[in-house]
């Protein structure tokens, strides 16, 4: 019960070296999830690699072409407050702003959050809808993976042993609006269901959270929506495709059945809200 040895590397390379050498090492990002699990006896890491001293993992940079890089150690508070995340990137900012509560947002980081991947968490659908890429590094290599491929299954990601999340990249986004809508029992709870919607050209990208093992995205549904966002029948058809593709479970937050019924309703509401926003702008 004495717990892990904590190492606090100053550089990414030093951190990756520890991960390469120590098979039972885990990264300590904000602690919001890992320490809670340790307190509950659900995680007993041998070595903890604290990432908070590594400057290259922090902060949000926006390139001239509109690409965004969010360092893995960027706190939810910082992401939620960064108004440069606008238009098609607003979905990520909005997701950050509804995670847990202000105190936890001072601790939690995007890298830590997605590495743990709770399918009911807020970032996964937002990043999938934003077509984000996850940057992963190990002592041997660095690679990038589309968010859709990063989230593999319930609580499972594509992170390999020795690897860690170093950054999240967002492609340039247009000025068209995006939205993240979360339905939860109480403020700060994990979602019963959530929906991230990014208008894209004449169509939209949609990802649904908490309704299956991974954020739900349907190419077929998006194809139906293309050019027909204002068409109720098209939206209904896309919604039906999404709902059919969902694989929700019953849990203390809601039944699988309810979640399936929510998907079309959330989609319709989000689309009409975004179309109103676009019109107003």
């Amino acid at each position: 019960m004495t717990g892990p040895r904590l190492v606090r590397p100053a550089t990414l390379d030093a951190a990756l070296a520890v991960l390469a050498e120590e098979p039972d090492a885990r990264c300590l990002a904000g602690g919001a999830t890992l320490v809670a699990m340790m307190n509950a006896g659900l995680a007993e890491p041998g070595v903890l690699v604290a990432l908070d001293g590594i400057a290259e993992l922090r902060g949000i940079t926006v390139a001239d072409d509109g690409r965004v890089r969010i360092g893995a150690m960027t706190r939810h508070r910082e992401t939620a407050a960064d108004m440069r995340l606008a238009g098609g990137h607003a979905v990520v900012r909005q997701a950050a702003s509804v995670i847990a509560n202000a105190v936890v947002r001072n601790m939690g980081t995007m890298g830590g959050s997605i590495a743990f991947f709770d399918p009911a968490a807020d970032y996964p659908p937002a990043l999938v809808a934003a077509d984000a890429e996850i940057e992963l590094a190990s002592a041997a290599a660095t690679r990038r993976l589309a968010a859709r491929e990063f989230f593999v299954d319930w609580y499972t990601t594509a992170i390999e042993p020795g690897e860690m999340v170093t950054a999240i990249h967002l492609p340039p986004a247009g000025t068209q609006p995006s939205i993240y809508r979360k339905h939860a029992r109480t403020s700060g709870d994990y979602a019963i269901a959530s929906l991230a919607l990014v208008l894209d050209g004449a169509g939209a990208r949609v990802a649904v959270g908490a309704c299956g093992p991974v954020p739900l995205r349907s190419d077929a549904a998006e194809a139906v929506l293309a050019g027909r966002l204002a068409d109720h029948d098209a939206v209904a058809e896309a919604a039906a495709l999404l709902a059919a593709a969902a694989d929700p479970v019953d849990d203390v937050r809601g039944s699988a059945d309810y979640r399936r019924r929510l998907i079309p309703r959330l989609l319709q509401a989000a689309i009409s809200e975004l179309l109103d926003t676009r019109e107003a702008a």
């Binding site: 606090r8 602690g31 320490v35 903890l48 604290a50 908070d52 508070r77 202000a102 601790m107």
Partner: peptide, 20 residues
Amino acid sequence: TVEVDGWPVRGCLSLAAACE
């Protein structure tokens, strides 16, 4: 809830060793 570097955080989710 306590403050670390001016920000309210969860004392129960902060490892003491990481607070040096």
